[in-house]
């Protein structure tokens, strides 16, 4: 079931991950890193980019080998591929910044267990060609990164009065410590989901005006 890689379809593969099927705000996947390491914008961005890399690289490899891997061992193969790229990211981040590695802690290794990645491998990359798989992974990864960044930005601004470590609010601002704690992750995620769903509902109502008359 090879999908023809026309430009229009390719663009669609990319954009669906950013908005219509956003991994965090619509599919609600990968919650563990999304909640745990979105306490500052920097951590959120790093985690998002790390996931983007692992997703893209493993999607590409899995798409390439999809014809030679028998279905009985496909999950084992996916995990092997994903774990490899996670290990690469882990070493890469250590080489770039030890502080960042310390801040992200075990959550880098836990990218392996991010259901988003295995989900894309099984649902998309194993059935589509290299081009489509790459676009899908880039879109989903970008969507994940944007979602984490929006969580991280809100949490860092409210929780510490800074963004990417730079002060954005007056020094007299009283930080909301709860935003840096795990419960702040849940609160912020709930807030964003509220915004996202309200927006989607409004759009759905606008595109189908007759549906509005249905009594609730």
């Amino acid at each position: 079931m090879e999908a023809p890689d026309t430009t229009a379809m390719g663009a669609e593969e990319f954009w669906k991950g950013l908005w219509k099927e956003n991994p965090v705000f619509v599919q609600v996947l990968g919650m563990c890193p999304a909640l745990a390491v979105s306490n500052t914008a920097r951590n959120a961005l790093a985690m998002g980019l790390a996931t983007l890399f692992v997703l893209t690289a493993s999607n590409a490899v899995i798409s390439l080998v999809r014809h030679v891997v028998p279905k009985q061992v496909r999950i084992a193969t996916y995990i092997l591929v994903i774990a490899t790229f996670v290990t690469l990211v882990d070493m890469g981040i250590q080489a770039i910044s030890l502080d960042l590695h310390k801040a992200l802690g075990a959550f880098i290794s836990l990218i392996v267990a991010n259901c988003l990645i295995l989900g894309r491998a099984e649902a998309f990359a194993s059935r589509h060609g290299l081009g489509a798989s790459l676009l899908d992974a880039l879109g989903m990864g970008a969507g994940f990164t944007v979602a984490l960044l929006s969580l991280g930005a809100v949490r860092e601004i409210l929780g510490a009065g800074t963004l990417f470590g730079l002060p954005v609010l007056p020094a007299a601002f009283e930080p909301w410590v709860v935003m840096l704690l795990p419960s702040g992750g849940f609160l912020t995620l709930a807030g964003w989901l509220l915004v996202f769903n309200a927006f989607e509902q409004r759009r759905a109502r606008a595109s189908a005006p007759e549906a509005r008359e249905v009594p609730g």
Binding site: E174, V177, V178, S183, G184
Partner: peptide, 10 residues
């Protein structure tokens, strides 16, 4: 409880 978590010092 929300305030306790958000503004522990106060």
């Amino acid at each position: 409880a929300f305030l306790q978590a958000a503004f522990p010092v106060t």
